[in-house]
Structures are given as structure tokens and as C-alpha cells.
Simulated scan of single mutants.
Amino acid sequence: MKKYLFQPRSCTIFIFLITTLLFSSCDTLRKTPERSTSSRGTASRGRTSPARRPSDRRPSDRRTSDRRTSDRRPISKAPARKPATTRPSTYTRPGSANTANIPQVVQIARTYTGTPYRSGGNDKQGIDCSGLICQVYSEMGVKVPRISWQQSEFGQEIGKIEEIKPGDWLFFVPEAGKEGYVSHAGIVTDVRGQDEIIFIHASTSRGVREDNLFSTYFKGRFVKAMRPF
């Protein structure tokens, strides 16, 4: 009898212990994944949310700053463009000078006779062809273009060689019989006949001198004549 009573009690205790362990272990197994999952979710949200917010804001900030800067650039450049538009107005208006001053033009031009040629020169120490024209009129208080191709568009073009008069400007190209850019210029000083039109110019080899338009060298290179005033 004692043996039979002992066995059921011991079995009951044993089963109780096992059940207790199982419930406690299951509770532990359940709680661990929930905590780890929640902690991971919190950690991941903590890492990504701060990283996304600045990246979402920075491009908009950069675009705004770029627009502001681009809007300011034209304002800073605008003053630099104004002188370019006002330069032509500083020239004396073509045709406004008194034609009675033509003898004075010729007289001043001849004072440069013998001046050596110097590219970019503007005085009697050295001068080039367009510089001679510019300087002669400058001494008269008249402002004309400095570059030869600009001078070739200043004033009124003369249609016929027979109509050329003292004070007119003559223009030439580099090669005889060929079209090209204006490379040389001079001022007519005297018209002695249909085949003798004298002009003064700054020769690259001989300096300031007078030559005949109908000479072999210049006749083939002549392209146009302009009456500035």
C-alpha cells in the first residue's frame, strides 16, 4: 500500500514541475522575439528617419540658392555692357563736320609726312594707316573710328571714282584683284586728273607718304571710297 501511494504522489509532483518549466520556458521564448523585434524596429526607424529628412531638404535648399544666385548674376554683369552700347555715340556724326575744313584736314595730314610706320601707333613717333586718319581728325576735335574696317563703314560711300574729292577716305585689300578684308586706308589730298588721285597714308615700308591711287600697286587693291563728312 505504501508503495502505491508513493508512486502517484511522486508522479504528480514530477508532472507539476515539468508543466511549470514548460510554461515558463514558453513565456521566455515568446517574450524574447517580441522584445528583439520591437527593439529592432525602433532602432531601424531611429537610423533612417534622421537620414531621410536632411536628404529631402538639401536638394530644395540647393535649388533655391542656385536660383537666387542666378538671379543676381545678370544684375552684376549689366553695368559692364553699357559702355559697349554707348561707344558709337561718342563718334562725331558723319556729315556733321563743315566741308570747309577739308584743306585743314589735308594740311594736318601732311605734317605727319616721314613719320615711321608703327602698328598701333598714334603720334609722330610712329603711326599706322588707320591711326593717321584718326589722329588727323582728333587734332581738329572730331572723333572718328580707330580701326580701318570701322572707318570703311563710316560716312557715305562714293559710287564712282570720278566723284572722289580731297578729304575722302580710300580703302584697300591685301591682294590685288581679290576680295578680302580692309587692310589699308588713306586720305585723299589732291585730285589732279582722271588718272591721278593723290592720297596720304602710312606705308609699312616707307612710313607716311603720298601716292597715286592709279599706280599699279594700289589700283588693283582699291575696293571703296568713303566721304566721312
Rank of each mutant, 00 (worst) to 15 (best):
I187N: 07
S65Y: 12
Q151P: 01
Q150N: 14
D168K: 01
R93P: 04
Q107H: 12
I164W: 04
H201R: 03
T92I: 07
Y117M: 05
R118Q: 15
E163F: 03
V191C: 03
I197K: 02
D190T: 13
Q135F: 01
I187A: 10
A80N: 14
G114E: 14
T189N: 06
H201K: 05
H184D: 11
N98M: 02
R67F: 09
I164H: 06
R87T: 15
A185L: 05
R63G: 14
Y137I: 12
K178I: 00
G193R: 10
G159Q: 15
I198A: 09
P116L: 07
N122I: 15
I108L: 05
E163P: 02
K124S: 07
Y137V: 12
K82L: 14
F171V: 03
Q107C: 08
T115N: 09
V188I: 07
A97K: 01
N122F: 11
R110I: 00
D71V: 02
R81A: 08
R110H: 05
E179C: 02
S96D: 14
E139R: 15
I158P: 13
W169K: 01
F172E: 06
V191K: 01
R63D: 13
G126P: 04
V182E: 12
I161N: 03
S152F: 13
K82P: 00
F154R: 01
Y91H: 09
R93H: 09
V136Q: 01
D128A: 05
I198T: 07
I127V: 14
T92M: 05
T69C: 06
I198H: 10
A97L: 07
I197Q: 03
Y117T: 06
A202E: 06
E179F: 01
I75H: 09
E196P: 05
G131I: 04
T115G: 10
G186R: 02
Q104W: 00
T64G: 13
A78L: 14
Y112F: 15
I133F: 07
V188H: 04
E153G: 10
S89L: 11
S96A: 15
R81L: 10
T189Q: 04
R67N: 14
I198W: 13
L170A: 04
R73E: 12
F154N: 02
A80V: 13
T64L: 14
F199V: 02
D168Y: 04
E153V: 08
S96Y: 10
